Computed example of a mutant assay.
Amino acid sequence: MTNRPQRGKITSTPAGDLPRWVRDEIMHTAPKARRDPALIELSNGIDAFASERYGKASHHLEKAKDLAPQAATIRELLGLSYYENGQWQKALQELRTFRRIAGDPMHMPVEMDSLRALEKDRDIENTWDRFRKLDAPRAVQDEARVVYGSYLLEKGRIREAWKVADPGRLVSSPAESTVRRWYVAARIALAANDHQSARKLIKAIAAHDEDFPGLLELRAQLG
């Protein structure tokens, strides 16, 4: 049995500079004649993605996918490009394929957000139930709670939403994903007319980032 190359984070790859683990992945998954063309298209796709040209990124990554369909990195970045372009169904398909190939749940929050946009409530519930059983990294857990908590809030399921967002202890040096979780929790607290909790959360968010997106709206709602 051939060992899969150790994966890194594709979104942290410098534009136009493919790291060893990406090259190894293509070597393991593509026929010899297709490897160099796949690497060229992938490199162009990463460059476009890093420049937030998601349509162009999709164009190159679709070509890379045709050349190396079993490369998890290609399916991952193609799915994220579709997501950024609002192509929810395509994003969902590619990110599910990425998860199947790589065995990595890191983009399940993006899957759930795509399902929210597609208004597939039962699939959101099922994906959340599957995610809860996995041992995902803390940052991924935070993002999943942000998405699912927001979904429950939209559905008016305030008590459930609060349990999911669960802001925990308001530490002085939070991770970015934790602050996003606090933000959702503050929205839920306001919806529940729990102004005391909302005020504490807003203060904690502001202490971390006074320019956090949505903070002004929260303050306006609090009054």
Rank of each mutant, 00 (worst) to 15 (best):
Y148G: 04
K155Q: 15
A191P: 01
D129R: 12
R219T: 06
D113Q: 15
R122V: 08
R100G: 00
I101L: 15
Y151N: 00
A15G: 05
W162L: 13
H107R: 13
P14A: 09
T178R: 14
S150L: 06
P31C: 08
R23V: 13
P37K: 09
K163T: 09
R4M: 14
A206P: 01
N44I: 00
R100L: 11
L61F: 09
A57V: 07
A38K: 04
A117T: 05
E52C: 05
S197D: 12
M27T: 10
I202G: 03
W21A: 07
Q89Y: 11
E119A: 14
A33R: 14
A206Q: 14
A144E: 09
V184Q: 05
S43R: 11
S177Q: 11
R157Y: 03
I26L: 12
V184A: 05
E76N: 14
D211N: 13
Y83P: 00
L95P: 03
H59N: 10
F98V: 06
R169T: 13
V184L: 04
A50M: 08
F212H: 07
L190Q: 01
H28F: 12
F49Q: 03
K200P: 04
L77K: 05
L78A: 09
L80N: 08
Y82L: 01
H59F: 12
A206M: 00
G103I: 06
A175D: 14
I10R: 02
P109S: 09
A136I: 06
K32T: 11
P5E: 07
K90C: 02
A161F: 07
T11C: 05
R169D: 12
E41Y: 11
A64Y: 04
A185D: 02
R34I: 00
R23L: 11
L218T: 02
R132K: 15
V110A: 09
T13W: 00
Y151C: 00
A72M: 09
E111G: 03
I26G: 06
K200N: 14
L18K: 08
L67Q: 12
D211L: 07
R100T: 13
D36V: 14
I101K: 03
M112E: 02
A15L: 02
D142W: 03
S172F: 07
A38C: 07
K63T: 13
F212Y: 13
D24G: 07
L215P: 12
S173P: 00
E210M: 10
E176D: 15
A175K: 11
T73A: 15
A185T: 07
S43M: 09
E176P: 06
I202M: 12
G103W: 02
R100F: 03
M1H: 14
G86Q: 12
R75C: 11
V146W: 01
R23N: 10
I46A: 04
N44K: 12
G79P: 08
V171D: 13
W182I: 05
K200F: 06
R99L: 00
K203G: 06
R132E: 13
L80D: 06
M27I: 11
D121Q: 12
R35D: 09
L201C: 08
V110F: 08
E25M: 08
E160Y: 00
T97W: 02
A185P: 08
I124Y: 06
E125S: 03
P37I: 09
A175N: 10
A33V: 13
P5H: 08
A220I: 10
M106L: 02
A204Q: 04
P137I: 00
S51D: 13
R34C: 06
Y148W: 08
M27F: 07
L18W: 07
